[in-house]
Design a protein around this nucleic acid. Structure first.
Lengths: 175, 175
DNA sequence: GTAAAGTGAGTGTCTAGTCAGTCATACTCA
DNA sequence: TGAGTATGACTGACTAGACACTCACTTTAC
């Protein structure tokens, strides 16, 4: 999985399986004893990365704290994950738009993010996004997060600032 | 270009050039008298689609009107373009993440959107996004627009509502 | 001694791009 | 007027290369 992530980042999804195998230190043949096909590898990887991202975002979530602090904690965790795992994020971006990823895999990935979705839903209903539909509100929040991550990674010198500004935009959108 | 757009939407960027040629009603060989390579075709198409999108967004821009109305006009135009050209948008999304599109093409595309960027910059400096960097603010606005488009296309029954809600979120973000 | 894991050359398939030749068109001039 | 001719668009069979996946065989682990 790590090897595939690295190779996808540098060569894209059309990278030969042989390259992935080499990067993993195994033969091309061996790869197919672990994964039925290249598409299967991609689907499993997508699922693993999504699950890892969600669990990182929810790490050490403060239960009783006030709402703004909770949301900020979530935001910080998410940004922390993104900045310390830029490769995973880039690979995920590529996999996400690939048509090799089956609807079933996407559905499974969505399930692993259920807690995250619940929290977003809570944010939506409690503020000015309440007129937005559930999915739309979640998508808006995700896209604000994704855009902020892009800029933190692309411009690390101002990462802290981007993180804060991004959060303020989110907060103004949801309250 | 139209044929390529249609084929990319249904088959992705890995569609054979022969399929694109067939869709255009010409032979595979002919295609290469108009485009040096498959990548060249993709780059030209990307540029054309981006330019078309920008010009559609700026169509009939009201010069003297009050600022909120101006921004809303821009927003409406953009959403109108997206909903009446879902194929172009989907093709653009695929091309945008492809590594066949050269940095030079991306730069040229950026240039064709200069007026749009100017307007976004005006929005940024005049409101609460003034703490955000220029690029970051523009990216946030674009991603709000893109997400809204996605939902308008995906859920046409509520398109009008999504359009309005999306604009309100943008307006709250920039004022 | 045996089962499991690993190997990598080989196979079948796919496709971008080529090129030798066809065909439609516009123009010339007897 | 229309046969001849030049031009360049168009054609599609073909080539060369790439790559996912297989399988007969080797190595390792216990």
């Amino acid at each position: 999985m790590k090897a595939a992530t690295r190779v996808i980042v540098t060569q894209g999804l059309s990278a030969p399986t042989a390259t992935i195998a080499q990067e993993a230190g195994i033969s091309n043949g061996s790869l197919f004893t672990y994964f039925e096909s290249k598409a299967d590898l991609f689907n499993q990887l997508y699922l693993e990365l999504k699950a890892g991202m969600a669990s990182a975002a929810l790490q050490g979530f403060p239960a009783g704290d006030d709402f703004r602090k909770q949301v900020f904690q979530l935001w910080s965790n998410w940004m922390e994950w993104a900045t310390s795992n830029p490769e995973k994020r880039r690979a995920l971006a590529q996999l996400g738009v690939s048509d090799e990823i089956t609807p079933a895999t996407r559905a499974a990935a969505h399930k692993t993010m259920a807690s995250l979705a619940d929290l977003m839903e809570q944010m939506r209903t409690s503020g000015s996004l309440r007129n937005a539909s559930k999915g739309f509100a979640a998508a808006i929040m995700s896209s604000l997060a994704e855009t902020t991550m892009d800029f933190m990674i692309h411009d690390p010198a101002n990462a802290k600032k981007h993180c804060k500004v991004g959060f303020e935009i989110l907060w103004r959108a949801i309250t």
